[in-house]
Design a binder for these strands. Structure first.
Lengths: 118, 118
DNA sequence: CCAGAGGATTGACAGCCGTCGATGGAACTC
DNA sequence: GAGTTCCATCGACGGCTGTCAATCCTCTGG
């Protein structure tokens, strides 16, 4: 709210002509935008946001069976969310015997954070 | 990659018992996670990422008809994306006569950026 | 008043998403 | 080998998403 607007152009429109020409262009490339959207999509579910939040502060020390009681979802659904995060490059999973230990790959998060903050 | 893991626990599992108890809990609340996921979801499409990118650097000076030639989509689709961004609180739209001037509300972006960076 | 322009809305369509129950598979204990 | 445990995968379901063509609404200029 309260964004200061300075709307000067196009007060008098030439009737019958096109509204306007594109004056600005995106700063991010199409491929960059696609990558940022992919990371954002991986974070577009509350469960996955909390998963990343937990894993970021306990990298490698939390097995999947320890994660599940934190969320009110079944085990296949949790596995599905972890797969989504892995496919987007936000996490990877270390296997040790029976257990699986997911951990966050910080690069993707920094990619999105950099664009948001810059 | 190359995250240093220190996986000590649960080398010997007590047979017949549960794997483990939840030792960690999310740092973000459920409502916070839902809000962050909502913002991320609004940015989960490449077109919307580029829209925010353009609008952030030209707040108030770009009308919708000027935005459309930048993307290879129809006018209803662009309107749909702007509606999504507005419903998520990422932008608002100022109307002046015939034209509509969308502009970014920085709070939502900072909300997500803060969580990513913190 | 009317005609035209910018933009929002509607309805439709294929495709993806989150969820579940059921099943499969690998590793461990006995 | 038999049984158990952790995790992944499969199939199915309702719901949502991005896109378009068609239409509607509001404002402008005459």
């Amino acid at each position: 709210m309260a964004v200061d607007l300075t709307l000067a152009p196009k007060q008098k429109r030439p009737v019958g002509e096109a509204c306007c020409e594109p004056l600005v262009h995106p700063d991010v490339s199409v491929t960059q935008a696609a990558r940022l959207a992919q990371v954002a999509k991986a974070l577009s579910d509350p469960v996955r946001v909390q998963l990343v939040d937990v894993l970021r502060r306990h990298a490698g020390k939390v097995c999947v069976c320890e994660l599940q009681p934190l969320f009110d979802i079944g085990q296949p659904t949790l596995s599905h969310h972890l797969k989504k995060l892995r496919e987007a490059g936000l996490i990877d999973i270390e296997r040790r015997g029976l257990w699986a230990y997911p951990y966050v790959l910080p690069d993707a998060l920094e990619e999105l954070s950099g664009w948001l903050g810059g």
